[in-house]
């Protein structure tokens, strides 16, 4: 059976094609302003027997394609546990949400926590800060890793933090130290969430922000157990969504 898993997120649409439980292909596209059409392009690209959608666009996909839908939380649990059978917890930092998941047997979700409406500490937050400081995302992560110490910022609201960053820049502060401070604050908040769901190692760090080596460093340093990052951290949700059908 060929299954297509689609993770229609706030920033990207990730697709994974499975044959049985084996990944045969995957792709990533920008969500842009018309995620429906971008999803349709994946759906029409290749023949499949079953389609499962996850992410913010799952309900729209369900209506448009008549497919099944699961939440990102269930999908990330399944995907992470399939990639790392010993995984005990998952951290997914995506474009707009941060999710921490405590796993039971076979990737079953035992407990989870997710941010409310605020996009603090997510991919979106990092993108806004990178732009404010004239960095690409790669340059920002490299600068943060290279900085000796971070400058703490008090506000974690994306809008207020940007104003604060602007203030620091005009004071002549080193932008590498500013981004280091931002990364440290996000890591601290995230580690707090992990503690609240009693996350144990090994922790699978996935989602787009897991591609940021500075974030991976800080989470690894602060977490009590082992931290593993999948090779393609962004497609774990799409993979898990596809698995949810493949296993039925």
């Amino acid at each position: 059976m060929r299954v297509l898993g689609l993770d229609i997120g706030s920033r990207s649409i990730d697709a994974v094609w499975l044959e049985g439980e084996r990944i045969v292909d995957w792709a990533v596209a920008d969500s842009g302003y018309d995620p429906g059409s971008a999803s349709a392009a994946f759906v029409e690209r290749d023949a499949h027997d079953v389609l499962v959608a996850t992410g913010y666009g799952r309900h729209v996909a369900k209506e448009r394609f008549g497919c099944a839908a699961v939440t990102e939380i269930t999908a990330y649990g399944l995907g992470a546990a399939a990639l790392f059978p010993h995984a005990a917890s998952v951290l997914d930092i995506g474009g707009q949400d941060t999710k921490v998941i405590s796993l039971g047997h076979g990737g079953r979700v035992v407990d989870f926590e997710m941010n409310d409406k605020c996009a603090v500490g997510t991919g979106k937050f990092l993108e806004v800060m990178a732009r404010a400081l004239g960095f690409t995302l790669e340059e920002m992560a490299a600068a943060s890793r290279g900085a000796e110490s971070g400058i703490a910022t008090s506000s974690m609201c994306t809008v207020f933090a940007e104003s604060e960053v602007t203030g620091l820049v005009h004071r002549g502060e080193d932008r590498a130290r500013i981004v280091r401070g931002l990364h440290e604050t996000i890591a601290k908040r995230t580690l707090g969430s992990l503690k609240r769901v009693d996350a144990q190692g090994p922790l699978v760090f996935a989602g787009g922000v897991a591609k940021n080596p500075a974030m991976v460093d800080l989470i690894t340093a602060g977490f009590s157990g082992e931290v593993v990052v999948p090779e393609e951290a962004q497609i774990v949700g799409a993979y898990g969504a596809a698995l949810s059908a493949a296993r039925e």
């Binding site: 913010y56 990102e72 939380i73 079953r108 979700v109 997710m114 409310d116």
Partner: peptide, 17 residues
Amino acid sequence: MEDVGQLSTRVEAFLEM
């Protein structure tokens, strides 16, 4: 109503659990 998207995800994930 601005947090309905996130709340729906949380509630649905809770039900799936």
